[in-house]
Design a protein around this nucleic acid. Sequence first.
DNA 1: ACATACTTTAGAATAATTATAAAGTAGTTA
DNA 2: TAACTACTTTATAATTATTCTAAAGTATGT
Lengths: 140, 140
Amino acid sequence: MHKMNSKNKTFIDKLRSSGLRPTNQRVEISKFLFNRKKTFHFTVEELKNSMNFKRSKKISTATFYNTVHALKSAGHLKEFSLENNTSYYDTNIKSHHHFFDNGKVIDIKSDKITFQKLPDAPKGKKIKNVEVVIRLENNN
Amino acid sequence: MHKMNSKNKTFIDKLRSSGLRPTNQRVEISKFLFNRKKTFHFTVEELKNSMNFKRSKKISTATFYNTVHALKSAGHLKEFSLENNTSYYDTNIKSHHHFFDNGKVIDIKSDKITFQKLPDAPKGKKIKNVEVVIRLENNN
DNA sequence: ACATACTTTAGAATAATTATAAAGTAGTTA
DNA sequence: TAACTACTTTATAATTATTCTAAAGTATGT
């Protein structure tokens, strides 16, 4: 007996293309992450807390880590780091940049930043990507 | 009895301006960090291991963390992050950028990158700094 | 419906970092 | 210089983020 409406398909596809069977837990995580208009920035701990908050049967920490890691490896999530030893993930996987405003992260669309000059890659290497972080502080 | 030649002064000044008394341990750490030609990238663990390697009397982990943290807060070190939940520090505090080549970090001088277009800061905010990370991969 | 390989989970293990509190030291003062 | 006080060092415990483990459960092909 399959419970699957057309809306779920997309989430399930993301899981399958990450090499993951679409179990209930994973489908719910995938929905939670991708069924939204705006891009979503999160840590695994935040994701776990916000999803488990209302659930009677909690999804385990390991499942959150496994699922997020697989989605990231498959390219459905983008990982980035702040200076607090925690991994952040972004549902916006298109190349883009970030504002950091004391712990808060805001996406900057790729075309908002263009370069006049970029260095050459060292010999034997090539550029995989370029990421810009603009740190903000309060005016005045 | 003071053992202090003019060379040490500089290291001691960095400590004092970080609000730290120049104890033996701290002076040695400060020397180790700043008494070099090229800029130095390190994690606290790496710093501890390389300094303690040859010492009979080891400097404690807490002292490394405290000292590095104070030097960073005072602006004598720059902190940055890779995607491995570890803090990296850079003795080059001038605004500059980085190549990341699987875990290896290479400085890029500030003037090697210039922008054609940068976004405005959100209202009430201003730009504190802009950092570029260029990720490398092997050719072919 | 079976078999099998993949999953979930609680809990242990690990790694980086921070906190604690007792013993030691720098810098000031008398 | 002796004494004092506040700051330091250190070993160790605690904390946080993450990964590992192994037993019990489930998806999927036949």
